[in-house]
Design a protein around this nucleic acid. Structure first.
Length: 568
DNA sequence: GACTAATGCGCG
DNA sequence: AAAGCGCGCATTAGTC
């Protein structure tokens, strides 16, 4: 346990299995990295601390890594809602550990101040960092987990979530190796030369001129949806919105250049030259990763839209000289997770190859891969109309266990109930307005429109809980994958050349550089590329065994080794 | 000028 | 307005 002592110095306490204090040392904050390094060299404990970035960022900057941790803030959030916990009283009463909104990137990254815990503690959304508060919280969490319906699963979830926090801090420290020249080349090819500030790039201006000519409206703004919509109507194009999906359905000479303009405009505003100037420093893009930032347990991110890097820009992710990127993503993670959770033997059989959708076609239930995909997505998201509404019922008869699991999750959500992932992360309660709406609809004098509104709200929530159990369990699988992978990579030898941009703790050996729900990119010295690829594969297999021991479902990867990211 | 909401589109 | 889940971010429009 690491915490701030009453004297303001840093206390490091050894605890036994019951949480009793065995020994205590008190050091200045600046000595913590060395202390952690010494202990890690002798095997390393599980470091318990209030909040991983608050303690670990500065440790990483000194070139020291921690092997395992328990993040009190993240575990508190899980236990607060988990339906496996029998008595939420003590956890929920500890209001200081309720997490506020994530701290914006500007508040975290800019300042190089070491160990500025006061500033962190003063920031909204932070938790107590002092030792006594942390000891008390750890005791509450132990008791909540030990007394829960499934201590084993919650312990696994606490460990996986905490390992994710270490990975997130390390990803931020390492950054994504980013080739600014390649990014600029892609921009120039699409948009034309970089214009002076306030000017429109040439290709965009050309497209805009074509649109205005075709609409017979030389001044219309293409950047204001209401104005554009009125101009489209005046030109006889009958659309309800200016979204590309609706526009593509219409025939008019203005449509093609307008869609082209929108694409270019999006590229410029989201990931143009301004983005490069703001987010890339010394060959690295360093977004903030926020574990548990999504209710389902997926990560969120902050700073530059890290989880939405367009496929078009993937070639700008480029390894340092002498290094390579090992890019791996799981094929159809969510349906595989569903098959494993539900113990659906037919679906597991369909998943036996590398392409689950092809396996579904082979089972005979649908004719084409496209139908298999639409049907599976409809099953996961709750599609009821169109192709998906037609195909989902067929899947229901072929994969009864898998469909039964998501259908039951949907029914529970529609009733206002809660659902849980495989390891025990639970959905949030319905909000008071939702409950009030359901109650209003059940009153004797209810307006029929209230009834319809309430049914729609119930179905909406059903689709959310339906997806929650699968998306959330897939996120748990991914955490287990990351957790295992980072330890395997840490066991590789440190080598030359060092990737200097990746920081003192990571630059000497293969390290994670990017993570996106079901995909990882490892930045590796060329001679460790094969070892890193093997580590990624072994970690995926280990994650499957850890979550679903004995399950026939496997998790095959698409994996590539190259200097540039190949996605897309 | 500072704010929130709505729109639209990128990712899984 | 993707047919259906989860996000972040830039921009415009509307409000104070």
């Amino acid at each position: 346990m690491v915490g701030r002592g009453a004297d303001g110095r840093t206390a490091v306490v050894d605890l036994d299995a019951q949480g009793e204090e065995l020994s205590r040392v008190v050091v200045d904050l600046e000595q913590l990295p060395q202390l952690i390094a010494d202990r890690e060299a002798r095997g390393g404990p599980r470091w318990v601390w209030s909040d991983t970035p608050a303690w670990y960022d500065a440790v990483l900057r000194r070139g020291v890594r921690a092997g395992r941790c328990h993040d009190l803030r993240l575990v508190h959030t899980i236990l607060q809602h988990s339906l496996l916990v029998a008595d939420h009283g003590p956890i929920r009463a500890a209001r200081a550990w309720e997490t506020g909104p994530p701290v914006p990137a500007e508040a975290r990254s800019g300042e190089a101040t070491l160990f500025d815990l006061d500033r962190t503690a003063a920031t909204q959304g932070s938790v107590p960092h002092d030792l006594e508060a942390a000891l008390a919280e750890l005791a509450r969490q132990r008791s909540a987990i030990d007394g829960s319906a499934d201590p084993g699963r919650l312990r696994l979830l606490a460990a996986a979530e905490s390992a994710g926090a270490l990975v997130a801090a390390e990803l931020h420290a390492a950054g994504i190796p980013w080739d600014v020249d390649e990014h600029d080349r892609i921009l120039r090819e699409a948009l034309g030369p970089r214009p002076s500030p306030g000017q429109t790039p040439a290709r965009m201006a050309e497209a805009a001129a074509e649109v205005r000519a075709a609409l017979g409206d030389p001044l219309v703004s293409l950047d204001s949806p209401p104005k554009l919509l009125r101009a489209l109507h005046r030109a006889g194009i009958d659309v309800e919105s200016t979204s590309q999906w609706e526009l593509t359905a219409h025939e008019h000479p203005a449509i093609e250049p307008l869609l082209r303009y929108k694409k270019l405009s999006r590229l410029l505003t989201a990931n143009g030259w301004t983005w490069i100037d703001e987010w890339v420093r010394e060959g690295r893009y360093r977004p903030l990763y926020i574990p548990g930032g999504v209710v389902t347990g997926r990560w969120a991110s902050n700073g530059g839209g890290a989880l939405q890097i367009p496929r078009q820009l993937r070639p700008a992710l480029r390894a340092d000289p002498g290094w390579v990127l090992v890019n791996a993503d799981v094929a159809q993670l969510e349906p595989r997770v569903l098959a494993a959770m539900a113990g659906d033997r037919a679906m597991a059989a369909a998943a036996a190859g590398t392409d689950l959708y092809a396996g579904i076609v082979a089972s005979g239930v649908v004719a084409t891969r496209q139908e298999a995909k639409v049907g599976v997505l409809g099953a996961l998201y709750g599609g009821t109309t169109g192709d998906s509404g037609r195909i989902v019922p067929r899947l229901r008869s072929t994969f009864p266990a898998a469909m039964g699991l998501v259908d039951e999750a949907a029914r529970t959500g529609e009733r206002g109930g809660g659902v849980s992932t495989w390891l025990g992360r639970s959905s949030p309660e319905p909000d008071p307005a939702w409950i009030a709406s359901q109650q209003r609809a059940h009153q004797a004098d209810a307006d029929p429109r209230d009834g319809e509104r309430a049914r729609r709200a119930a179905r909406d929530r059903g689709r959310f809980t339906r997806n929650f159990v699968v998306q959330g369990t897939a996120a748990e699988w991914a955490l287990a994958w990351l957790a295992d992978l980072r330890l395997r990579l840490a066991r590789l030898e440190a080598v030359e050349p060092v990737a200097t941009g990746s920081g003192p703790a990571l630059g000497g050996r293969a390290h994670l550089a990017f993570f996106l729900h079901d995909e990882v990119i490892v930045h590796a010295p060329r001679e460790q590329a094969e070892a890193a690829a093997e580590a990624i594969r072994e970690a995926a297999a280990a994650a499957g065994r850890l979550l679903f021991p004995g399950s026939p479902v496997d998790f095959p990867l698409d994996l590539q080794i190259s200097e540039r990211s190949q996605k897309g």
